[in-house]
Each structure stands twice: as C-alpha cells, then as structure tokens.
C-alpha cells in the first residue's frame, strides 16, 4: 500500500468510525450472554490442563538409535572399541554431548533434526504407521472406533502445516500447501480437525470429522437431481427460491468423493455478490471419503483447483 492509499485508508476509517459508534451504541448484550447466565454453564466444567507437547516414543527411540550409531561409527573409525578404549573416551564424551543435543532437537517438534539423526530419518509413511500403532496401543482410537458421545471437544491449536498433516487421524485429509495457498492455522479436538489456508485474496477452510449418518445422510446429494446441489438453478436470496424440503441439502450438500468432478464443483463455487474490482467466488460443500467427512469452504478457488485438491486427498488417504 502506498502513502496515498494509507492516507485514504485513514480518512475512510475516521469517517466510518463515527458512524459505527452511533450504531454500536444501540447494540446491547442479550441476557443470554450475561456473564452470570453463561457461568451457570461452567458448573461441573474445569479448564483443561495445560497442553504439554507430547514426546512420541519413536522420537526417543530415534535418539537412542542415533547414540548407538555414533558409538558404533566411532568404534569402526577407530579400528575397534577395545583397542582404542583409552584414546576413544574423550571422543565418546563429546559424542554423548552431541547426541544429547540431537535428542533435545527430537523432543522439540518445531526444530529440524540434528545432523546426527539424518541417516535414521523415517519416511513420512513409516513414521505415520508407527505412530498409528502407538496410538492404538495407548488407547487413542482410530476414526471408526471413536466414541463420539464421550470425546472431549477441547481444541488444541496446531501451528505448523507439517504438524497438522501428521496429526492423527485426520491430518492426511488436509490439502497440501501450494504456492498460492499456505497453511495459516488449525485446531484439533479428539473428534475433529480443522485448518485454514490462505493466499492472496484466497481462502480455504477445511474441517474433518467422522461421517455421522444421522446428521449427514439427509444432506447426501443425488447427482441425478441437480436441484439438490446446483446453486445456479436458484436465485438470491436462496431462502426465497430454494424449496423448503431441499433447503438442508442445498445449503450444505454432501458429495461422495468418487463422484466429485469439476462440473459438479462449478455448481457450488459461484461468483459472490460482492461488487468490486476483483472477481471473487466462494462456496461451501462437504465430501464423504469412506467413514470420514470433510467440509470445505473456499473463497476464490476455481472448480479445477478444488477438484485437484479432492483428487490429491483421495490419493493421500489411499
């Protein structure tokens, strides 16, 4: 933004602040949002304990393996552990220090692995499999086993894209980052995971959870009936043009992943009503991938791009 635009922005802000102040004075907090009323809902509820970054077992094992490899390597380099025992000791001491740093790096999720560990890096698939096994062993249930009624919905923020994609069980349903769309933020609960991707005037919100027949089946689309999902058949305001019996499915349709095509998406991603210089489009819909449901809300993504995201997701989850 140049100086002239900044000046204009300030002038617009000053002009509008006065107008909004006048209107805002009339807005009163409804009784239902009184602190006293809301606090009644806190009975029997305690804040969740502070989240401590977990230290996956495989990382610990990795660190131990790295130490072991160093020792073996040092022995080999020195021509034998026994022969070089006395002269090797100082080196081993320094190696232990190095290995400790490597383990510390492994414990810090945001840090890259120390060089000592690079030979032992697992592929993404390996690490995911191992963690999945651990999760089952430790009682964390996979999607099909989740007890939806009893799970906590406490959200935990996921700051990095890598962490979001590796979060079980839903991370693999998140889209890959691209040059024009990068991961911005996300949350995970034991029942769902959501993520926000942004780019220049673009946005993609993704929310993943278990498919719930009771809630989602009424929203399942029959592609042979475009009136259940094609917004182009209706006029704005939709509340007046969409028949009441179709309102639920038209508002939030659920498509089967294998049925999605660019043509289908063209029926959902329509130009917004916004009047401005830039052409914008937005739309929302859900996609069922087996037992999992993903809600998408996007701004300024073309049907082709959105279709590619879904194709990639299908490939990622196998």
């Amino acid at each position: 933004m140049n100086h002239q635009e900044e000046l204009e922005l300030q002038q617009d802000l000053e002009f509008l602040r006065g107008r909004f102040q006048e209107l805002s004075q009339e807005i009163k907090l409804p009784h239902s949002l009184d602190p006293e009323v809301l606090c009644q809902r806190l009975e029997n509820l305690e804040p969740e304990p502070e989240k401590v970054r977990s230290f996956p077992k495989w990382k610990g094992l990795l660190g131990v393996a790295a130490c072991f490899a160093f020792v073996l390597g040092a022995v080999w380099m020195n021509g034998g552990f026994v022969r070089e025992a006395s002269s090797g000791m100082p080196e081993m001491a320094s190696m232990n220090l190095e290995s400790s740093s490597a383990m510390a790096a492994a414990q810090e999720p945001n840090m890259k692995m120390a060089p000592a560990q690079t030979n032992f890096e697992m592929t993404a698939e390996d690490s995911m499999e191992e963690t999945a096994e651990e999760a089952v062993q430790e009682g964390e249930q996979l999607p099909s086993q989740m007890d939806r009624g009893l799970k906590s919905t406490q959200p935990e923020q996921i700051e990095s894209y890598e962490q979001a994609r590796q979060t079980l069980p839903y991370g693999s349903y998140l889209p890959e980052e691209s040059a024009s769309l990068t991961y911005e933020s996300g949350y995970v609960t034991e029942m769902s995971q959501s993520a926000l991707y942004v780019g220049e005037n673009r946005e993609l919100q993704v929310s993943v959870r278990l498919y719930d027949p009771a809630q989602d089946e009424p929203r399942l689309v029959n592609l042979e009936k475009p009136e259940t999902y094609d917004l182009r058949l209706y006029t704005v305001p939709y509340a007046d043009s969409v028949p009441a019996e179709l309102a639920q499915v038209v508002e939030a349709p659920v498509f089967q992943a294998e049925e999605i095509t660019t043509a289908v998406l063209e029926a959902r991603l329509l130009p917004s009503q916004e009047s401005g210089d830039e052409k914008t489009s937005q739309g929302s819909f859900s996609v069922q991938y087996g037992e999992t449901l993903v809600d998408y809300y996007c701004v300024n993504l073309s049907p082709e791009e959105m279709n590619q995201i879904i194709v990639d997701t299908k490939a990622a989850i196998g």
Binding site: L23, E26, I27, S185, Y187, S194, L196, Q205, S207, L231, V236, P237, Y238, A239, V242, V250, E251, A252, L270, S272, Q273, E274, Q282, G283, S284, D295, Y297
Partner: peptide, 25 residues
C-alpha cells in the same frame, strides 16, 4: 473469529442480509 468463520461457512453462499431489528430499536 474461527467460530464466526465456521458459522459463515454453513450459510448458503454469502448471507448478506442483516436483521435490522437486532441492530436498531
């Protein structure tokens, strides 16, 4: 903001009407 975004995502494309009674007496 996240909760608002989720709510907005549930609307049929672009809910632009404001309920005047909720703003003005």
């Amino acid at each position: 903001s996240i909760r608002c975004k989720r709510k907005i995502g549930q609307y049929i494309t672009g809910r632009n009407q404001l309920d005047i009674d909720d703003f003005l007496d």
